[in-house]
Design a protein around this nucleic acid. Sequence first.
DNA 1: GACCAAAAATTTGCATTCATTTCTGCGTGA
DNA 2: TCACGCAGAAATGAATGCAAATTTTTGGTC
Lengths: 241, 241
Amino acid sequence: MLDSAPDSAVDPEAPSLPRIAGTVAASLHGTLLAQLRDYVVEGNLAPGARVPERLLCERFGISRTPLREALKVLASEGLIDLLPNRGARVRQLGPEEMVALFDVMGGLEALAGRLACEKITEAAFSEIERLHHAMYAAYLRRDLHGYFTGNQAIHDRIVEAADNEPLATTYANFAGRLRRVRYAANLDEDRDRWGEAMREHEEILDALRRRAGPELSDILFRHLRNKRRAAAVRESAAAEA
Amino acid sequence: MLDSAPDSAVDPEAPSLPRIAGTVAASLHGTLLAQLRDYVVEGNLAPGARVPERLLCERFGISRTPLREALKVLASEGLIDLLPNRGARVRQLGPEEMVALFDVMGGLEALAGRLACEKITEAAFSEIERLHHAMYAAYLRRDLHGYFTGNQAIHDRIVEAADNEPLATTYANFAGRLRRVRYAANLDEDRDRWGEAMREHEEILDALRRRAGPELSDILFRHLRNKRRAAAVRESAAAEA
DNA sequence: GACCAAAAATTTGCATTCATTTCTGCGTGA
DNA sequence: TCACGCAGAAATGAATGCAAATTTTTGGTC
């Protein structure tokens, strides 16, 4: 092990820093990281494919050093795998991994719902209520895109209302990992699930209105579980095709 | 934005890889990362202090390139802050950040409890039961260290029983961030809290025995909330000292 | 024609080097 | 005495160079 003596060589000053937002302040490196992350999340690279350093360097107009730094971060975020001496590969989600990630998403949403009940303002609730009604209207007219957009917005607002920065960051991370599996499509072919989801959203709004944290927490987790079930069905169906 | 055409230049092969464990396979870089993380988590650097690249390079016997890569990852994990052109600093937790992190820990434990109820084996439950009784014995004899060790072990076993890799990783991450604040001491000066915590653990074991997922989930979240309250009291008391 | 071995070419990992920015120390002037 | 400003020094951010490993290509054999 390393010697465990505290490093008194470093200055123990800096009592209160400017507290730059987030983990990495708005910098050049941060920009590249965001770009590369989007590049991967948006599916520009095939799952399981090699991530070619040289090509990406040319594409982003930088040298290998900052790119490799960004790759290490993306690996720690779970977006890519790093194989020793064999480069990076886009992480491929097997069924088990997808199930696990969905469950974590459910847990995070459950937490967000509970915290939101404690902290949400009346104005923020009204906004969610408005989104809910708009989503319901989309549901009635079988407007899948409108429904999905509203659904996404509602969940995001709940996380936002939780007012917890680490939670929001972690939530975004897992959402990004699952972005690649388009789990929100084909509801129009699954009327039962769509109606069920809509009913669950009624419960969500109701619990949020009553600021019933634990209850909302439970509803949200089950909501994600059901969403996962629907996605899993589609997934296996797609695999057979 | 970048051109959005999928990169068909990369090979779309690699249907199923050997699935190296975790985000980063056991490599030299992974080793350094773990070492550096421990170095920070164990408090060898004062909170808010600069992280001196040069010194750490000498200490670990490497050049700046791999060290800087590791620093970027640590920043993404929330252990340090990266200030553009001004180096890395050990992240300092203010009261609000600590509260936020505790809540996320609570949410993760709540999730772990729920999943554990679904998946735990009888053997794993028996082990937790054993740990619980050992912890209770420690409580009776006012053995703080024994109590704390057992407590930690129980929570870890629950996360383990949840059998969810991303959850375990995220849990470890947040636990590491909070490691620096020693929130588990001084229970002997707070008999009420200690007894309360012990009662909560009785509930936890009971719910787990009945495989009552949602119930256990709720108990665990409240358990963490109460732990946070106790820690917060100590924190402010220490701040006044 | 398929299979295997060896060498060339590419790629990765890390060290080193260079440009730019920030920090430090000291002097000047109000 | 204090504020301001200006070199010099140190540190950061990024590019390049080099050794080791891997992948691909080539040549040979069965």
